[in-house]
Design a protein around this nucleic acid. Structure first.
Length: 108
DNA sequence: GTGTTGACAATCA
DNA sequence: CTGATTGCCAACA
């Protein structure tokens, strides 16, 4: 049968992205571009697409922009998670920014 | 096939 | 910080 005939299961790329996010330890984060490079496929925008569609099932707050700013619309919720998990922040007020120098997870 | 859009990234003003 | 610009890759009309 065709590869797109399957139902319920996510795309292969989406599965890897969600798996990578799930592997990020508390107190650490990865940027969209980092995940794309870590997987060796697609790009930061494709990772953002996956997070927008199915990111609700993983620790989406551990996925931030390259400069440490959290996803749009969830800045307030993300800040609460960072304070709760002890994620190193560069500023505790808007704009919320994670200290990438320490919080960035290399992927192993 | 072309053009637009997007939870991106880097650079410049 | 805001805005514009370019590069990137894939989905979508």
């Amino acid at each position: 049968m065709t590869a797109s005939a399957r139902g319920g299961e996510l795309d292969d790329f989406a599965s890897r992205v969600l798996d990578a996010v799930d592997a990020i330890p508390a107190g650490h984060v990865m940027s969209y571009g980092d995940i794309a490079g870590y997987l060796g496929a697609g790009g930061p925008r494709q990772v953002g697409r996956v997070m927008a569609l199915w990111g609700g099932g993983v620790a989406w707050w551990r996925v931030v922009h390259a400069d440490g700013t959290p996803a749009p619309g969830h800045e307030r919720a993300a800040l609460a998670r960072y304070r709760d998990e002890g994620t190193p922040l560069r500023s505790a007020r808007s704009p919320v920014r994670v200290d990438m120098r320490r919080a960035r997870w290399p992927g192993h």
